[in-house]
């Protein structure tokens, strides 16, 4: 699993790819938090377009970033969430703490950014 980070004005986007599990979540968390603490974005987008698998470690990843964003008043948005991932997220009620943007029908899912 991997993460590519971009910052545009007040918005920070994390393009996640590969499989999100306990093994890889720590490294992803460290990379995201390092930049988030530096730029303190008003909005953070977690883009799951390139994610092929996620277990409840992904829930911890989202909830932890939500708490971090809240600590400086930012909002969290989840993008390009496939239906198996959505099933895991709904179980944890993540749709209540973060906006889940649905991929529009016909829209191409954004994959891994090179």
């Amino acid at each position: 699993m991997d993460v590519q980070l971009t910052v545009e004005e007040e918005t920070m986007t994390a393009f996640l790819s590969g499989e999100i599990d306990h093994h890889g979540a720590g490294e992803i968390r460290r990379k995201i938090d390092e930049m988030a603490q530096r730029v303190r974005p008003q909005k953070m987008i977690l883009d799951f377009g390139g994610v092929t698998f996620m277990d409840s470690s992904g829930i911890g990843l989202v909830m932890g970033r939500y708490r971090l964003l809240q600590s400086f008043g930012g909002a969290l948005c989840l993008r390009h969430v496939s239906s198996p991932l959505k099933k895991v997220m709904r179980l944890a009620g993540l749709d209540r703490i973060a906006q889940i943007e649905d991929t529009r029908p016909g829209e191409k899912q954004e994959g891994k950014r090179s």
Binding site: A25, S56, I59, G60, M63, G64, A92
Partner: peptide, 15 residues
């Protein structure tokens, strides 16, 4: 300290 959600068994049970 590990940011575990505490949902492991809940996932197994529901899936």
């Amino acid at each position: 300290n590990g940011e575990r959600a505490g949902l492991g068994f809940a996932v197994m049970e529901s899936f």
